[in-house]
Amino acid sequence: MDGSSSGIQEPFDLIRLSLSERVFVKLRGDREMTGILHAYDGHMNLILSDVEETIMIVNEGEQATVSVAKRKMDMLFVRGDGVILVSPPSRT
């Protein structure tokens, strides 16, 4: 079972190859963030630095609007069970 083009044998290789790179992370609860990936484990617990988090807030009302809140953090631990998706920087 060889990765079709990029020499990836298992999904975690994708994460391993993204160490020290800026990654995009999608979390449960409509949270998204980008940060520099420093460490991860088999649970997908992550250590990120220089993080910018984006939170979508749906405002109920006459016309439902979505506002976006952003905040920055220097260093962050992300618990793996909240992770939905991790995308490395595009190598194209």
Binding site: S4, I8, P11, V86, S87, S90, R91
Partner: peptide, 26 residues
């Protein structure tokens, strides 16, 4: 069932909402 996808499109309710070169899905 952790998954690595290439040329990924994210679809929400029929609309493409994101594109990723590579994506790891937990």
């Amino acid at each position: 069932m952790n998954i690595a996808l290439e040329q990924t499109e994210e679809h929400v309710e029929g609309n493409v909402t994101n594109r990723y070169g590579d994506a790891f899905i937990r």
